[in-house]
Write a protein that binds this DNA or RNA. Structure first.
Lengths: 335, 335
DNA sequence: TTGTAGGCGTTATCAA
DNA sequence: TTGATAACGCCTACAA
């Protein structure tokens, strides 16, 4: 019952044909100005809203995009949650509906739902979903797709991401600028492009200052805070001046361990992270390279809409991260 | 290009009319068994999937439901995030699409999008969205709606919620059973039904044991952990034996303060909370009444689908919470 | 039990 | 610049 007003009603009220009304409403050219105004006025008066199903069926768009997060747990994953939030906001700005696809237990069905049912015009696939069987299948189907976070192999799909290489380089440079020389790295999963880029940045920053990287100070992590906490003793035992954790969750795991074991931060050891989700943990102040979540979301949505519209989209859009000083490697430096 | 297979294709391949094919596919009666099987086989072979826009347009359903969270911040809100997760899972089980409606900045438009565009068959409105102007408008529109968490005034909309009264009573009884007598309460927002019910349960548990509630031990909270942390000194100054915080976020705020100020839990003071989202904070073990998130999600989705189908739905479905002992009021009691 | 035909609301094609 | 008319894919009386 919501809305019984159809295009025909608008057409009738403005004394034109449905075809003309449609053209006027959609901003097509070839409609006399006064007619267009009349139609618009009628539509407004009638509170007309197009039926999207009909639009879609007639070959138009759905005005709904999908956000694929795979079977990743949203709960407790501040990064994923931030992505949802920012994409939702961006979709809303463009007046697009947002379908959340957390699905997992029915690979085939999930993909087909998306593709075949014409329920979504395109999808944004988050990096947290990459690697799952059905997500890979999804990438193979030719549906407009934008990756939010780089895929290790698919370079054919446009990607929007933070510039992880720069992020790693700048953050590490900052650590080095504080005088730290024995800098450890708690890396992310090897399968993740972002983690690798951050590590590359870590090395690059050292190279720029002609400081050798001590390979024994590079620890393998998994982006998980609890795991980091459990490996903390081993890492601290290597007595680094500072530790670059590949994300904030791990940095906080380390901070927690430090706190519990009387290790002073930054006095005894500096600790930094990535992502900028740390404000969620007010008791842990950690210097970090924050993700530009808002821009990630809006850029991904805009690119996807371009793609759907048939416009060209850059194969890779890297956004600048932001260094947020919170004192976990010492006082901010004078410039 | 996704899927070119239409109902006609299936009909042709199985040698029947589209009408019969439609009936067979939709489980309508009045189709010979062998014919039905033939159609189903053809559909399977062709990998046929109905076009939802067409189904919808033809008067059928959209197979998409909406989850309304208002402008609530998802990031850092473990309760809201858990709701999203559980509703998404439940929707997926029923093969329903899930539209996430975090929208906020365009009240009117948002509502109309939902209602008029025929893009969603019904909505689940989370308690975190209640009170916002456009959400209230949404409740007035006659669209199938289920509340996930009680509304202070709208008793006309079916609600699914945890049994907060019982939760408050049982948890408080547990605290009292541990021998605590001066029990403080850090309440939730007065506008929230769940918070009030928990407080009622708190009082009920006292009454049952003929213990008077010391009104000076009832503190007003806002469900926010940071705020709880900031008010902690005042609360601890009242020297309660134990504190019942109206949700885990606040309990953790108190625990954090206690930890930082050398107040031993549970030795000096017991602390308990509600919701069961605390596992997210491994360093804070807090006894709590956990929300049955999975069942909340599945019940809400199922009820909404019933509502959409035109079936009756109970006006109120209260699910049982679960006491989770984590030692923050002392060792678990022998039974 | 099955098939035919009409319509759901919109857009696009093609004349006028 | 405008208006018929035909899709789009499906469902559902109604008829057979």
């Amino acid at each position: 019952m919501p809305n019984d007003v159809t295009l025909d009603d608008v057409a009738r009220r403005s004394g034109v044909s449905p075809a003309t009304a449609s053209r006027a409403l959609n901003g097509r050219r070839g409609v006399r100005d006064d007619v267009r105004e009349r139609v618009l006025a009628a539509a407004g008066a009638l509170k007309y809203r197009p039926n999207r199903a009909a639009q879609n069926l007639a070959g138009g768009r759905t005005s709904v995009i999908g956000l694929v997060l795979g079977s990743d747990e949203l709960v407790g994953n501040a990064y994923a949650t931030s992505i949802v939030q920012s994409v939702a906001a961006a979709a809303s700005v463009h007046d697009e509906g947002l379908m959340l696809i957390l699905d997992s237990h029915k690979p085939a069905v999930a993909v087909q739902n998306l593709l075949s049912d014409g329920i979504v015009d395109g999808v944004i696939v988050s990096v947290v979903a990459i690697g799952e069987q059905w997500v890979e299948e999804l990438l193979d189907a030719n549906m407009p797709t934008v990756l939010l976070g780089a895929h290790p192999r698919r370079t054919d799909v446009p990607v929007v991401d933070v510039d992880n290489l720069t992020a790693g380089r700048v953050l590490t440079a900052e650590v080095l600028a504080h005088g730290h020389r024995r800098v450890a790295m708690l890396a992310g999963p090897k399968s993740r492009v972002d983690a690798n880029q951050r590590l590359r940045g870590f090395r690059a920053a050292h190279e720029e200052l002609n400081i050798a990287v001590d390979e024994s100070l590079i620890f393998q992590g998994d982006f998980n805070g609890q795991t980091a906490y459990e490996r903390a003793s081993e890492i601290f035992a290597a007595s680094p001046d500072a530790i670059v954790a590949c994300n904030d969750e791990m940095a906080i795991g380390l901070l927690r361990y430090a706190k519990e074991h009387g290790i002073a931060v930054p006095a005894d050891v500096g600790i930094v992270g990535f992502d900028g989700i740390a404000p969620r943990y007010p008791e842990y102040e950690v210097t970090t390279m924050a993700q530009p979540f808002d821009r990630l979301g809006s850029t991904a949505v805009k690119s996807l809409l371009d793609l759907i519209r048939g416009d060209d989209v850059p194969p890779e859009q890297l956004l600048g991260p932001q260094l947020i000083e919170r004192g976990s490697i010492g006082s901010p430096l004078e410039i």
